[in-house]
Design a protein around this nucleic acid. Sequence first.
DNA 1: TGAATCTATTTATGATGATAAAATGAATAA
DNA 2: TTATTCATTTTATCATCATAAATAGATTCA
Lengths: 264, 264
Amino acid sequence: MNKPDIRTLDPSRRASIKRKRSDAVADLIRSHIFQAGLKPDDRLPQEPELIEMFGCSRSTIREALKSLEVQGLVQNTTGPGGGARVAPVSINRIVGLLSNYFYFQSVSAAQIYQIRRLIEPELASSVVGHLTALHFEALEQAIAVQEHHPGGDADWEHHRHAEIDFHDILIDACPNPLLGLVCRFVNEAIRHLIGRSGVQEFAASFTCENVDFHKRLMSAFRSGNAARARRVMLDHVLSAEAIVVPAADRGIDQPVFREPLRLD
Amino acid sequence: MNKPDIRTLDPSRRASIKRKRSDAVADLIRSHIFQAGLKPDDRLPQEPELIEMFGCSRSTIREALKSLEVQGLVQNTTGPGGGARVAPVSINRIVGLLSNYFYFQSVSAAQIYQIRRLIEPELASSVVGHLTALHFEALEQAIAVQEHHPGGDADWEHHRHAEIDFHDILIDACPNPLLGLVCRFVNEAIRHLIGRSGVQEFAASFTCENVDFHKRLMSAFRSGNAARARRVMLDHVLSAEAIVVPAADRGIDQPVFREPLRLD
DNA sequence: TGAATCTATTTATGATGATAAAATGAATAA
DNA sequence: TTATTCATTTTATCATCATAAATAGATTCA
């Protein structure tokens, strides 16, 4: 058969290793979305049209659309007016895909806190002035969850998750999407650590301490004091690190920035 | 027909919105990989067996495998001994998926540098003692690329990419995978910024300055001085920020940490 | 009129069978 | 020995049909 093969039509592709047709089609559609500047909810051609456009079968098109769907770029719906539509790539999807990564690349508490101490204070500072009433409500509720069974042993994991939830809510209010994304990643890494940890010794006092820090953070947020929010968060993270990270793993040379300096 | 539907068998799924079979199968396989502790290169059952196991058709299984392939969890090969194999989720794949995100969520230079000034100095410090001869060679070459046409106007984008390449090489030597991942993200964001920027005014002197900083970094790396590497990198990032970020966007309250403090 | 329900249509989704292409290893020819 | 060819295994792609889901519009009931 003498059908033109997409893989050989594009010179840039031909040089590289043989790719699957479905992947080539997926990339072409992906490029088209960006180059045409399509926005979320814009419609893509329907399956029969795509089959016509790319000269390949339905299953190939479907695999390509599946690929784009997993990437979070498109969403497929049935029914009249349905088909493939452009979707906004959500931060949640990226984080979800990331979680696979941690299964093969385990990260230690020490490694997590090496970054956490740097970015969480920045997060705390940056959300000041951006927290809505809804945010405050959610934050209060996260604190309430932590306070509920302060002594219960079985609730340890529950408390730790509520602790991370508190920080995730801050991310929601963060005006810098990249900072938010990075913080989400670190939180996701912590969640994995909680899941597989045998480090459940530090229960009661740790939770109380965290709640206290969170309340002090709330106070700083309410008063609109970014500098104080930064300081309190730094203390919070360092305090947690001192408990969570085994002393042996705590790098002596790891620096802590206590006070910010200004650009000249 | 009275076939058991995977979507209704799992109580946790039944409650939520209707999912596609292929997604349900993909999740089951994914969970199996993790729960069985499968390692990269371990084989998954072949398509006919999977069809048997899940009681669904070939196309459903193939979509599920496609999904896992896009996620980077498995790799499919043809031929004897082929089939689906577990693959390590690579940092490159995650970054690739992330790049979609930036098309809908644009990030400004100011936002990038808010994070960059925090983590790049940490990166520079952490790679000290972990750079191999190969790393040094690659770093030298990246510098050479930047030096090649210091005045050429058309090379501006080329130089900027070489500048980012230099930092990516450091990431390769970073012993903290999470820090590496975060730095890759920031670099990816910068690459996007370069791609769509109309900010090409600052060309010649900027490149020279960067090369100078890179050479000073190399010196610190060679002498094994982590503290100096940190300081030089901070100066490098701040210098770049002062040029790249419009003064109006430069938040007055953004802090700069010039000297590290120690844990008590 | 207004809301709820039915029905038809559109579209993706799932199933089946056949063919093509890639990878492996064995057999063969130089 | 070395390279080549060939058969085999397994996915990749194709083609077609049947099913399920979602919407729009008509219809019915209050």
